[in-house]
């Protein structure tokens, strides 16, 4: 398996950072190939520029600043997103990675005179989300689980039609006990050790 792990948290001692380490440990133990993308560490710029907006249908070869990210997406067959849920979805830096990298010619193509896109990431067979929520599962249900919808609907439709999805989430992370946090991290590592 070729796993692209995309990670977004500004604080290197956060629970998300610990979860990321468990993800890579689990994948490595199972003998999978891993590429780790740490958006904060590489100071990824999340704001799609005016130029990018005007050229959003151009050949991605004309956009060298996203070439490496596009190559990673083309390489992987498993996409793993590790992030804290803020305002019910992915942090801005990860939303910006989607806005800027999942463009025409990388994630989809838009046939002329159409507003229906054609998927280009059909080699991705699984999407795994590892996330922490400050608020409870109930509050997140009321808010509509926006992050889950972005990952498992909006992104998934560009992947394999049989792309599987796995949701690993810790709810109530702001107030939960140390035991629950440890149990969550254990669950994450175990899942990645046995991921097929």
């Amino acid at each position: 398996m070729k796993a692209l792990v995309v990670y977004a948290h500004p604080n290197p001692s956060s629970l998300c950072a610990a979860a990321r380490d468990r993800v890579t440990a689990g994948l490595a133990a199972a003998g999978h190939e891993i590429r780790l993308l740490d958006l904060y560490a590489e100071e990824f710029i999340p704001e799609l520029s005016s130029w990018e907006r005007e050229h959003h249908l151009d050949d991605p070869a004309t956009k060298p600043e996203i070439a490496r990210h596009a190559a990673d997406l083309r390489w992987c067959d498993t996409l793993v997103l590790v992030y804290p849920t803020w305002y019910s979805a992915q942090p801005a830096i990860m939303k910006g990675w989607i806005d800027r990298v999942w463009v025409n010619g990388v994630a989809y193509e838009l046939p002329a005179d159409s507003n229906r896109i054609r998927p280009l990431l059909q080699h991705i067979r699984r999407i795994v989300v590892v996330t922490t929520h400050g608020s409870s599962k109930w509050v997140n249900a009321v808010q509509g689980e926006g992050g889950k919808r972005v990952a498992f609907r909006s992104l998934r439709v560009l992947c394999s039609p049989r792309c599987r999805t796995t949701w690993l989430a810790l709810y109530g992370a702001d107030t939960c006990s140390q035991e629950r946090r440890s149990a969550f991290l254990e669950r994450v590592e175990k899942k990645f050790r046995t991921l097929r």
Binding site: L48, A92, I93, K95, D99, G146, V150, S154
Partner: peptide, 18 residues
């Protein structure tokens, strides 16, 4: 609406201001 959601700049505005 990009990727069925708000642009990163607006999402970030909510995260940092609200």
């Amino acid at each position: 609406t990009w990727w069925s959601s708000m642009p990163a700049i607006l999402k970030g505005w909510l995260e940092r201001v609200f």
